[in-house]
Design a protein around this nucleic acid. Structure first.
Lengths: 151, 151
DNA sequence: ATTGCTGCAAAACGTTTGCACCTAT
DNA sequence: ATAGGTGCAAACGTTTTGCAGCAAT
């Protein structure tokens, strides 16, 4: 019960669909919100296993999808064929710069990007849904690079 | 010998590294440049197989990577965990809008995006390498949607 | 002659699925 | 009571790898 507000959002979302409210789903929610930074579904599953959780891989994968649907998490793809998630609960919209050498991920929020996706969607005759904007670059400072492979 | 210019670029790139110049690699180059639109490595492999090519799957995968490295192709990722390629030879830089209902891919070039990635990289202390900007949206016109799953 | 490339099949990887049992409603 | 969720293992689709033989340098 660490994130009552997020839990309420999830509970309401589950009820709104015909989804059941189960302890496993809330266990995944809690673990996901506690995770610092970006994580793959399997990362979270392993972490939960290490903490002696009995929740299955299948449940973790399915629940993360639900959490992304109700915007408690955002699903990211940095071009390496891994779906990553991060908490978007109480967080502002941002994009990512990824160092192609060390894998470091920098978050940034540039006001110039903000309206672009919706405007472009309209112009092209589409209803905007979501967007992804990733920059791939290299650390200028070699001392800060190649050291870690944070994700 | 349909694309002498592209072949020269590839040949020089191969020589510059210590990569060998082989007929298989040029077979992949030709097939890739002829492909209309976006294709996965396996799509191209299957197509080549249908045309009785004897080039192996491994060679197709590896060669596409080389072609992306020398900018004859660009490698795209539309968030579905498939690496797609498209010819970038003699093409202007553009981004993509993907319909989440029918999978249709629209290309667009918005001048407002152009300098953004490099500027942001600099501001954050990185050397710009590349970027990806994808918009996910839904066709407004239902008649034009759900019909095809072009890629 | 050397070193890199090829084709093949097997393995790897993240993810999804089928199914019998269980549980929230 | 029943529809939906769970855990498990097996299957999936894409991509990578190990290796023996081959070919470009």
């Amino acid at each position: 019960m660490k994130n009552k507000q997020a839990e309420d959002i999830f509970r309401n979302f589950l009820r709104a669909g015909k989804n059941r409210i189960t302890p496993e789903r809330f266990e995944v929610l809690e673990a996901a919100l506690e995770y610092e930074g970006h994580f793959g579904a399997d990362d979270l599953y392993i972490l939960m296993k290490n903490f002696k959780s009995r929740v299955s891989r299948a449940t973790v994968y399915k629940t993360l999808e639900l959490l992304a649907q109700c915007d408690l998490l955002s699903k990211r793809n940095f071009g390496d064929n891994i779906n990553r998630f991060e908490s978007s609960f109480k967080r502002q919209i941002h994009d990512h710069l990824i160092c192609v050498d060390c894998g470091k991920i920098i978050e940034f929020a540039d006001p110039r990007i903000k309206q672009l996706p919706e405007e472009i969607s309209e112009d092209l005759g589409f209803n905007f849904e979501s967007y992804s904007f990733n920059i791939f670059a290299r650390c200028k400072d070699p001392k800060k690079c190649k050291q870690s492979r944070e994700r």
